[in-house]
């Protein structure tokens, strides 16, 4: 309203400055009732047409478009949320399966390791036992051979002793005496 009064002042000033141009105007056109009927008539027609076009055509159309868009966006968002939840579930299931598989693999590896160790232990024990048996047998045969050899040595020793004594003394000792002496020497030696 301040602008209005300012402008009216200016308009007054301008009119005062140019009396020749505006002096002939009898009335201010917006207040001239001569055109009121015409203005009202055409306003009724144009505004009526505008109201009809807006209320029957443009606004319902735009309203439905906006509603449809809001629905589409809402639906898409819902779908996206559902998808995301599904993906998360799947990721969790995968993680679980992975953890289980890992646990299983560890169990299997452990079992395999244990059975392997057991088997190789058994094999080793068997081999060791076999080897020990062979060793004992070999030792026994060595001992037998040794005793036999020693027996031969004793017989030979007593024979030689008899021969030496007979040669030295001209008198042959009995075989038993010679054997005793050899045994004595063997045990001392």
């Amino acid at each position: 309203m301040a602008i209005a009064s300012f402008a009216t002042l200016l308009a007054g000033a301008a009119q005062a400055a140019t009396p020749g141009l505006s002096g002939e105007k009898a009335s201010f056109p917006p207040f001239d009732p001569a055109h009121f009927a015409s203005n009202l008539f055409w306003l009724a027609i144009t505004f009526g047409a505008l109201y009809w076009l807006m209320s029957k055509v443009a606004l319902p159309r735009l309203g439905s478009v906006l509603e449809e868009r809001a629905e589409t966006i809402g639906r898409d968002l819902d779908q996206a949320t559902q998808m995301q939840a599904k993906a998360e579930d799947m990721a969790q299931a995968y993680e679980k399966a992975l953890a289980e598989a890992r646990k299983n693999a560890q169990g299997i590896a452990q079992a395999a390791r244990e059975t392997g160790a057991k088997e190789s232990d058994a094999k080793r024990h068997a081999t060791e036992a076999e080897l020990a048996g062979k060793l004992a047998k070999a030792e026994a045969s060595i001992a037998k051979t040794k005793t036999k050899a020693m027996g031969n040595v004793r017989d030979l020793g007593s024979d030689i002793a008899v021969a030496i004594v007979a040669k030295l003394t001209g008198q042959a000792p009995s075989a038993t005496e010679a054997a005793e002496a050899v045994d004595q020497a063997l045990t001392q030696g």
Binding site: A34, H35, A37, S38, N39, F41, W42, L43, I45, T46, F47, A49, L50, L53, M54, V57, A58, L59, L62
Partner: peptide, 25 residues
Amino acid sequence: GLNLSFTNTSLWMVIVLATVSAIMV
């Protein structure tokens, strides 16, 4: 006896109507 002439005001009312309709319809 009524003055219902098509004036410059009427013309611009029609232009207003056409402009709004062009955008909205």
